[in-house]
Amino acid sequence: MTWYTGNAGYDTVLTIGLGIAALVIIGGLFMQSPYGRFGDAAGGIKLNPKLGWWLMEIPATVVFLVFFLSGPQRFEVVPLVLAAIWLMHYGNRGWFFPLSIRQVPGKQASFGVMVLGFGMVITAMHGYLNGAFFSHDYKHLYGTGWLTDPRFLIGLAIYLGGFALLISSESIVRNLRDKNNPGAAEYRIPYGGGFRFVTSPAYLGELIAWTGFALLTWSLAGVVILLITAGNLVPRALATHRWYREKFDDYPAGRRALIPGLL
Results as ranks from 00 to 15, higher is better:
residue 263 L to H: 10
residue 123 T to G: 13
residue 16 I to Y: 10
residue 109 A to M: 07
residue 188 R to A: 15
residue 211 T to S: 14
residue 131 G to M: 07
residue 156 L to K: 00
residue 43 G to R: 12
residue 107 K to N: 11
residue 58 I to G: 00
residue 158 I to L: 03
residue 163 F to E: 01
residue 115 V to L: 05
residue 232 N to R: 00
residue 16 I to D: 01
residue 92 N to V: 14
residue 12 T to A: 14
residue 86 W to V: 02
residue 197 F to W: 15
residue 181 N to C: 05
residue 111 F to T: 00
residue 144 T to P: 13
residue 244 Y to W: 14
residue 148 T to E: 12
residue 131 G to K: 07
residue 170 E to L: 04
residue 55 L to E: 00
residue 262 L to D: 02
residue 141 L to Q: 11
residue 196 R to S: 11
residue 122 I to S: 11
residue 54 W to E: 06
residue 156 L to F: 05
residue 16 I to T: 07
residue 47 L to I: 08
residue 218 W to D: 13
residue 239 A to Q: 07
residue 162 G to A: 04
residue 203 Y to R: 05
residue 93 R to K: 13
residue 216 L to Q: 02
residue 20 I to K: 01
residue 220 L to D: 02
residue 196 R to V: 03
residue 82 L to E: 08
residue 214 A to F: 10
residue 9 G to E: 12
residue 90 Y to I: 06
residue 64 F to Y: 09
residue 225 I to R: 00
residue 245 R to D: 12
residue 154 I to P: 05
residue 260 P to W: 01
residue 91 G to S: 07
residue 121 V to A: 14
residue 123 T to D: 13
residue 126 H to W: 14
residue 46 K to W: 01
residue 14 L to R: 01
residue 21 A to W: 06
residue 125 M to W: 10
residue 2 T to Q: 12
residue 263 L to M: 15
residue 67 F to W: 11
residue 88 M to V: 13
residue 36 G to P: 04
residue 83 A to V: 04
residue 79 P to H: 11
residue 81 V to R: 02
residue 212 G to I: 04
residue 199 T to N: 12
residue 210 W to L: 12
residue 165 L to N: 01
residue 61 T to V: 15
residue 87 L to H: 08
residue 5 T to H: 10
residue 124 A to P: 12
residue 195 F to Y: 15
residue 95 W to S: 07
residue 120 M to P: 15
residue 45 I to G: 02
residue 19 G to N: 00
residue 138 Y to R: 09
residue 164 A to Q: 00
residue 68 F to I: 01
residue 193 G to W: 09
residue 89 H to S: 14
residue 151 R to N: 09
residue 100 S to W: 12
residue 173 V to A: 07
residue 153 L to K: 05
residue 175 N to K: 06
residue 174 R to K: 08
residue 216 L to A: 04
residue 136 H to R: 13
residue 20 I to D: 00
residue 143 G to I: 08
residue 87 L to M: 13
residue 122 I to T: 12
residue 191 Y to P: 11
residue 52 G to L: 03
residue 250 D to W: 07
residue 32 Q to M: 02
residue 36 G to K: 06
residue 153 L to C: 09
residue 215 L to D: 04
residue 78 V to W: 05
residue 160 L to Q: 10
residue 238 L to C: 12
